[in-house]
Write a protein that binds this DNA or RNA. Sequence first.
DNA 1: ATCAACATACCGACTAGTTGGTATGGTGTC
DNA 2: GACACCATACCAACTAGTCGGTATGTTGAT
Lengths: 242, 242
Amino acid sequence: MLIRMPTNESPPIPSKPPRRAARGAAAAARIVPSAGGGAPSRGRAARGSARDKLIAAAHQTVRRKGYAATTVDEICAVAGVTKGAFFHHFASKDALAVAAAEGWTERARPMFELPPHTKLGDPLDRLLGHIDFRLAMLDGPVEDFTCFVGTMVQEAYATNDAIRAACEASITAYCEALTPDIEAAIARHGISHGVGAMSLARHVQAVLQGAFIMAKTTNDAAIARDSVTHLKRYILMLFSRG
Amino acid sequence: MLIRMPTNESPPIPSKPPRRAARGAAAAARIVPSAGGGAPSRGRAARGSARDKLIAAAHQTVRRKGYAATTVDEICAVAGVTKGAFFHHFASKDALAVAAAEGWTERARPMFELPPHTKLGDPLDRLLGHIDFRLAMLDGPVEDFTCFVGTMVQEAYATNDAIRAACEASITAYCEALTPDIEAAIARHGISHGVGAMSLARHVQAVLQGAFIMAKTTNDAAIARDSVTHLKRYILMLFSRG
DNA sequence: ATCAACATACCGACTAGTTGGTATGGTGTC
DNA sequence: GACACCATACCAACTAGTCGGTATGTTGAT
């Protein structure tokens, strides 16, 4: 399996100008030559790109080390910008965390739009295709397939409500993106025990998050794939396809 | 439901003299009057109790704030001991983390011994009873039912292999404690799709860990109970009791 | 039993280094 | 030239870990 979500690259769908008031045409200039191009004024990165690079650096670093252990200096170093740029775009480290959680939602969106399985006619096939897609993602280094908001909420749920709420919003958005297909699948095929669509969507998310933790204990994705396989079997049984 | 695991108390089964070489009869004097008794020389805590109190304080504080955000000073304050005592018993903060992960395994042991459901004759009933028990634990403040090692491994898996391995050992111990009943249940009742005992045990653990994260996103246990209910239904279906 | 000799448990002020955040100055673009 | 964008130097607060010292046992020879 070679399917993989973008990880270290910039967010794939930057449609929404990252929640700033007056941004204007700044988003149009989002090219990010990533220190290689020649035309734009010497080796200098494109002006206005620092914010996105900082968010991407936060995703990368926090998934590896956790939020508290990640320093502002390190995020800046990974992003290739200075501290001045950091505090120009974000009022604090916590403010970056909130923005990065919102950015994570954008980054996950293509999962529900791009892959071939989203074009299938049967909503149950689309749901199962999504599970297979998530299964295929569970490969390579752990820090490349785990969840940024899932990691961060563990450290923030009791100490920083703004971050917690941002993580909740991102996870809720995932579940809500999954719900329509589940609802349609229930309508077409019926489901055992009166299981609800949103409830099942949240269970999918829970199993994924749990699988990530199991993978972290061994630094290996195999144990996570096993759990998601159980999840797929459960869904098949619920829809009497087991 | 009122069943609850011990949380802020000292480890329930201190049988093993906390992995020290020559301890002798010191363990016998483990009384821990918890700052209330009158006999032992004024309000002073019992000698030799600092280590256990520090581990309990680590469990409590790390589950709430995460490992990196928890300071040594705070652990000492919660434990009611000084920094000198801390570094007398542990070479470093990381060394405490490893010891606390081992202590967590001891603390979880009664789950497989004490409750009434462990006395049931049918191993499948014991397994389902354990799930019900875990379900009943999902109540009250999130930091009181979540998993210490699951929380800590998220921050340590890529940066501290000693801590990671200690967390892995604790989770593996849980799965291995669950496996005999699952194996016996398979032998007596059969199971669908050739599901393996250890694989199912790990899935149980994964769902629990995922449920904890979901609970953290909302600071509420309800969403976690829902996922564990899905897990129970899956097990029932696997054993053709759905 | 007694007491020296030793071991363990604990105390709390101190330090070297790190961290999030600030102050201020430069630079390109409209 | 005004403003957004970014760089550099810096700081006050905090953190893990140290260290000299004290208190409370334990042991074994007498």
